[in-house]
């Protein structure tokens, strides 16, 4: 089950990544090899095994509904490349 170029460009678009033609070819080969390797798992008989819904054998980790302190506006915005009027500023988006 090798990856075709269309899969690479489709996923790249969803991830907002841009690749040259050569890069797409290389990625199709590399990612295809990864998928082929993962495919070896389908050689196993899993008909008697319960599907894994989560990798951790832990459940129900909750916290109480209690308010704790927040960051100040200044601290919250400290790492923002741009800010304005107490807000993070990002390139204009369609409403």
């Amino acid at each position: 089950m090798s990856l075709i170029r269309e899969d690479v460009t489709y996923v790249a678009n969803l991830a907002r990544l841009e690749f040259s033609e050569d890069e797409v070819t290389a990625l199709a080969d590399q990612l295809g090899a990864v998928l082929d390797y993962a495919e070896t798992l389908s050689g196993l008989d899993t008909s008697q095994i319960k599907a894994t819904e989560h990798v951790l054998a832990v459940q129900n980790v909750f916290r109480e509904d209690e308010i704790k302190s927040c960051l100040s506006n200044e601290d919250a915005l400290a790492n923002a490349p741009e800010s304005e009027a107490g807000c993070f500023k990002v390139p204009r988006v369609m409403e």
């Binding site: 509904d65 308010i67 704790k68 927040c70 960051l71 919250a76 915005l77 107490g86």
Partner: peptide, 26 residues
């Protein structure tokens, strides 16, 4: 609820911008 779904910041409506945040919800 009093607090957010995954962190302990308050959910109160109508506060000053970006005053109810923490590293989790940021």
């Amino acid at each position: 609820t009093k607090t957010k779904i995954f962190c302990s910041c308050p959910t109160e409506f109508g506060q000053d911008e970006n005053t109810h945040t923490c590293p989790v919800c940021l």
